[in-house]
């Protein structure tokens, strides 16, 4: 336990010194939250307003930046530089290092979520029509799905370059085409069909359901896609992961 705490502490310092996550995972969603607050319609006469629904999208950016970008890149980097191999010859399993890194990325995502929620709530008086419990549950589903996808990228990428390319592809594809930044509804129908392939689209649908307070049973298919993504990601990671 003492080892894990020290590892978390040091991985946290390294992440903080890196600054890129601070920009992409924290500043960017907070800025977007403020923009949406000013630009989107707050008219809630016919169900939840565009502004209310946008909360679903903006809160996922922190998960994307950590789970699909930061986490897999670090896994690939530590393997490529044989840092995991160095841990293999200590009493502490190298999985501890990955756990520490995962925990710290997750903490960063939670921080990003909190900041975005604060902007929505304090500046723009954001209210959830549905229940926070359901929203947070859906949020946990999205997190699990995205992190297992990230683990999979980190496991399969043969080298640092490939990991960079694959995570960037996954990150930008989902940032732009799953409704995280550009709202799903304004996309043409053909593109919407393509967007449905991305697991995060389903995550955002699920979160919007929770915001609107619609019966969650209607969103069962979205939850199923996320669970499938999680199961597939963890199973493939278990099968293909290499320490060196």
């Amino acid at each position: 336990m003492r080892s894990l705490i020290t590892l978390v502490n040091i991985e946290g310092r390294l992440l903080w010194k890196g600054m890129d996550l601070f920009i992409f995972g924290f500043c960017f969603p907070v800025l977007l939250a403020a923009l949406f607050g000013y630009l989107l319609s707050h008219d809630a006469s016919g169900g939840p307003s565009d502004f209310q629904l946008s909360f679903a999208a903006v809160t996922t950016i922190g998960i994307l930046a950590t789970g699909v970008m930061g986490f897999p890149l670090t896994i690939a980097d530590y393997r490529h530089r044989r840092i995991l191999q160095r841990f293999q010859v200590t009493p502490v399993p190298p999985a501890y290092l990955l756990a520490a890194q995962g925990l710290i990325q997750l903490a960063a995502a939670v921080l990003s979520f909190t900041a975005v929620a604060a902007v929505y709530h304090v500046w723009f008086d954001f209210r959830l029509d549905g229940s926070w419990t359901l929203f947070l549950l859906a949020y946990a589903f999205v997190t699990l799905a995205m992190y297992s996808l990230g683990m999979l990228i980190g496991s399969l990428a043969p080298n640092q370059k490939a990991a960079n390319l694959w995570s960037s592809l996954a990150y930008f594809a989902m940032l732009l085409f799953s409704g995280a930044t550009i709202p799903y509804n304004i996309m043409p129908e053909t593109l919407q069909r393509l967007m449905n392939v991305l697991p995060l689209s389903h995550g955002i649908h699920l979160l919007r359901h929770a915001i609107a307070g619609d019966p969650m049973i209607d969103a069962a298919v979205h939850a199923a896609v996320l669970i499938g993504c999680f199961a597939l990601g963890t199973a493939a990671t278990a099968k293909y992961f290499r320490w060196r």
Binding site: I10, L14, K17, G18, R81, R82, R86
Partner: peptide, 8 residues
Amino acid sequence: ETNFPDRL
């Protein structure tokens, strides 16, 4: 060959 994470 001993490598370390960046910024450590």
